[in-house]
């Protein structure tokens, strides 16, 4: 599965960059996230509940940050086991740039793979579900960066 997107965020590039590296911010923004804590210098342990079509599962896994280029972007990648539901793994290249009217433009480029029951039953629904989760994440993230709305 591949997905790309772009969001305008109402904050300076440095502030966005810091938020993107803040485990608490990420935990609050990832839909269904129950645990997101630092595990090593650029790693995190994570637990999140995801629902794709008829399959709902709790994914336990790890997240790694790499290609760190402050404050311009990084690659965030991870893999999670959803028990009988199967597995998901993948990553996203995230780039930050100054937006024309102020604020920051975030672009992302995701590639992901799913396997097991989640692929057998939900493949057709994955793109939609992933897009929805991404939108939800960035909506939450945008709110975090807009103190008025927080």
């Amino acid at each position: 599965m591949k997905m790309t997107g772009e969001y305008e965020l109402p904050a300076a590039r440095q502030a966005v960059w810091e938020a993107l590296n803040d485990a608490d911010v990420l935990k609050d923004c990832i839909p269904g996230c129950e645990l997101f804590e630092r595990d090593g210098e650029n790693g995190f342990k994570a637990t999140a509940v995801a629902k794709i079509g008829p399959v709902k599962a709790k994914f336990n896994g790890s997240v790694q940050l790499s290609d760190l280029d402050p404050p311009n972007g990084y690659r965030i990648s991870g893999e999670g086991q959803g028990g009988v539901a199967g597995f998901a793994k993948g990553g996203a290249d995230v780039r930050l740039a100054d937006a024309e009217g102020g604020g920051t433009r975030l672009t992302y480029d995701v590639d992901a793979q799913i396997g097991g029951k989640i692929a057998q039953l939900g493949q057709r629904l994955v793109n939609g579900a992933a897009k929805k989760m991404a939108d939800q994440f960035f909506e939450n993230f945008r709110k975090k960066l807009s103190p008025d709305e927080a």
């Binding site: 692929a119 057998q120 039953l121």
Partner: peptide, 14 residues
Amino acid sequence: YDDSGQLVTASYMD
């Protein structure tokens, strides 16, 4: 099958 070998038509939905 997708390229990674997952059968993506494994139910009567697909």
